[in-house]
């Protein structure tokens, strides 16, 4: 599966750049266009997802098949009354990180535009994955929720990475501070709702 940014994503990209409606100079227009093109050329989307039965417990949400608890009240609230959820991981790949690194030195304007495109792309890829899952399972998904959101501890990132075997399937690894590499990667849980 691949993701392409198009005109419909422009608004989102501008939002990440803090745009508040002023006139955009020709130079910045050019950079934005270049950033879209580079982004579409170099992203390499990899993804993995798994379905789990879930149960609310005192400390949080238990993933039955994995015998693993994701802690916190916020996740309980999101998944209230649901019996199933998917865990997933999506990345747009390491080449994107390299390109941002390069551009931040060569042309920081292009660099920040590209970085914003990367955020839009990874979000779009997550949306697509959820749509795919919905189609396949015939159920709607809730909003996605990631480690570090609300009171779901960032440490739970370790569980996501391990359970989804992301290193092997998507090339996503964690550093000792639970930050992902490639940088533009998302792990999340989303509940499944009966239609």
């Amino acid at each position: 599966m691949t993701v392409k940014l198009d005109d419909s994503d422009r608004k989102e990209v501008l939002r990440y750049l803090g745009y508040r409606g002023s006139e955009i100079t020709d130079v910045v227009e050019e950079k934005l266009e270049a950033a879209f093109n580079i982004c579409n050329k170099i992203i390499n989307v990899r993804q993995v997802w798994k379905l789990y039965s879930i149960r609310e417990s005192k400390e949080g949400i238990t993933l039955e098949e994995a015998d693993c608890v994701l802690y916190g009240e916020s996740l309980k609230k999101l998944l209230k009354g649901l019996n199933e959820a998917i865990l997933f991981c999506v990345t747009i790949g390491i080449d994107f990180d390299r390109e941002v690194e390069k551009q931040m030195i060569k042309d920081p304007t292009l660099g920040v535009c590209l970085n914003a495109c990367g955020i839009a792309a990874i979000e779009k890829a997550c949306d697509n994955l959820q749509l795919e899952v919905e189609k396949e399972l015939g159920k709607k998904t809730t909003t996605r929720f990631s480690p570090g959101y609300g009171d779901l501890p960032l440490e739970s990132q370790r569980d996501f990475i391990r359970l989804l075997n992301t290193e092997k399937i998507a090339g996503v690894r964690l550093n000792e501070n639970n930050l992902m590499n490639p940088l533009k990667s998302v792990t999340a849980i989303a509940g499944l709702m009966e239609e």
Partner: peptide, 11 residues
């Protein structure tokens, strides 16, 4: 103006 404009001016 927004960030890319600030940066392009700086450049």
């Amino acid at each position: 103006i927004f960030l890319p404009q600030l940066l392009s001016s700086a450049q």
